[in-house]
Design a protein around this nucleic acid. Sequence first.
DNA 1: CTGTTAGCGCGTTCAA
DNA 2: TTGAACGCGCTAACAG
Lengths: 358, 358
Amino acid sequence: MKAATIRDVAERAEVSVASVSRVLTGAGPVTPATRDKVMEAVEALQYVPHSGARSLSTSKTQTIGVILPDLYGEFFSELIRGMDLAARSLGYHLIVSSSHDDAEEASAAIRSMRGRVDGLIVLSPHLDAANLATSLAGRLPILLMNGGAGAGRPSIMVDNHGGAVQAVEHLIATGRRRIAHISGPTGNLEAETRLAGYLEAMARANLPTTVVEGAFDQASGLDAGAELARRADRPDAIFAGNDMMAVGAMLALQDAGLGVPDDVAVVGFDDVPIAGLMRPGLTTLRIHIAETGRNALERLVRLINAAGEAVADTACEVVRPELVVRPSSDPATHAQTTSGDRLRASAGSSPLEGENPQ
Amino acid sequence: MKAATIRDVAERAEVSVASVSRVLTGAGPVTPATRDKVMEAVEALQYVPHSGARSLSTSKTQTIGVILPDLYGEFFSELIRGMDLAARSLGYHLIVSSSHDDAEEASAAIRSMRGRVDGLIVLSPHLDAANLATSLAGRLPILLMNGGAGAGRPSIMVDNHGGAVQAVEHLIATGRRRIAHISGPTGNLEAETRLAGYLEAMARANLPTTVVEGAFDQASGLDAGAELARRADRPDAIFAGNDMMAVGAMLALQDAGLGVPDDVAVVGFDDVPIAGLMRPGLTTLRIHIAETGRNALERLVRLINAAGEAVADTACEVVRPELVVRPSSDPATHAQTTSGDRLRASAGSSPLEGENPQ
DNA sequence: CTGTTAGCGCGTTCAA
DNA sequence: TTGAACGCGCTAACAG
């Protein structure tokens, strides 16, 4: 009744377990005759190697862990999709662990990964957690995507500052002056860097700043948008710290009877799929999210394969967001986007398209 | 340089490995004195138990595998989010494996899970794969969510037929008569059941049917919507097989200069987050996606814990979708939805809200 | 209460 | 080319 082991196969095939192992792993010399006997037994017994046991003896799990703060929203799901695609093609499995708000939880999650994964990708927007990660992981290869706190460690980060500056400069260039910012939560590195970029660009242009703190989700964007809409010195543009808040803000503005972009322009960050589906389409800073995920995973695998020797890869790779102008900030783009091309482009802009989705 | 093992800890603490194990697992009697010695050594050596090895000896991995066709779109990400939340609170890890278009790929994925997981949740809209799953899994507890092909197996399925009927009846009740359907891809069980529901409801009302096949993604919804908009006998309502296609169709209609819902009403299926964020808000059939995911995981864990004995759980749990009327099908709801309440409700309608999202 | 030992299932030397 | 034996790191019996 129990699942067959390598020993059962060996007995039935009347060979040693070593031969079975050699046949199944493809390594080592094997006579066609014994190979056939083994394969026959494997078929008959419906044998499938126990990957846990294999891992223990090879000390390779062919699994990589992904630690992230949450799984909510399109940003993370796109990222994971890219990672999963890469993992599949490289023969790796993906084990995800989310909902790590604070550093303590995150480090516990990291700890529980030992012996379960060959490497880790850590997305932690909290500085503390990032430090903990590097120390707790021991000799486990780690790739940081924590928003910039991975000095001297292999990492990938988005140029949040540069992106924010681009956003603000775009708004200024299109004639906006009272530009408000809906920031991400305090303590979040990405959020703080984007805020800093906004402040710097505004200062450089000698414009007054307005900041409302959000929480990187739609609801907080809605609240912030509503608040800004009520103000006496209502802004003529809003730069939100991410797309989800931008979407919320846009709805709040519309609900308040304000036109986007006529009364208020809106710019987001990330270019999640929904950004191109909103009406008006949301101007944003495009990160090829899925592709970035794929890239991260591939780099980690490279790191794993080079374990020990080449510690040369200690660089921080920077992803430069690209400004995508859509109607939410520029009425001039309205015309182009009345055809379906925009949606198609939006859906198919990444090399990593899903197949057969439901 | 290598990570410390239980033996290293035992040596340093001057006790046996058994005592170390007892302290760490909490099982078995231990003197406070030895406990302290062990803990000291654990601290000093930064020891973390090797979960792979532990799994091998306990034959429990504390990991469950999720096999799904794709990771694209909000449906799956929401589902996984719910599962992940439940897994965390139950002390389980989640290993996801997607992009299994055909039955062969899916069964390969299932096979590779042996020895790596304690149970499996399989979402396969292909009947073949479902059958394969049940046979390939061996003695591994399995929960099917494949759209209805899990006769006699623990499974959860959505009442796709009933949902489709609800959608059509709603459209008829609001005065629509030329109701077209954008179906999911042929061969997909969910798609076919929803189509059947549409056909049946239309036949019952003595109305002529129009069906355009889509692929459950936005792009195909866009194409289908454009085609329907061009037709001489343009429909006055579209029921799409899922929300993503409904969104695409809505954009195509708007791009064609048609008003939603004035010229054409649109209804989707699933109630993914974006449904409530579209303008107009999309009428749809709500499945509490994340909650369903959580429920699935909890049930599988129950199955795992009862392994062997109670094979009583062989039921097919049915999730009944609930019609959520939004402006895309009913202008009358416009008024209520100009306030932010709708968004908030949409974002917070599930008990499973994410925290600290980015 | 503690230590010794035998597996868990597999890969992998090392002789033969 | 093959097979016997060892070890991966840990838990769980069983003695002491």
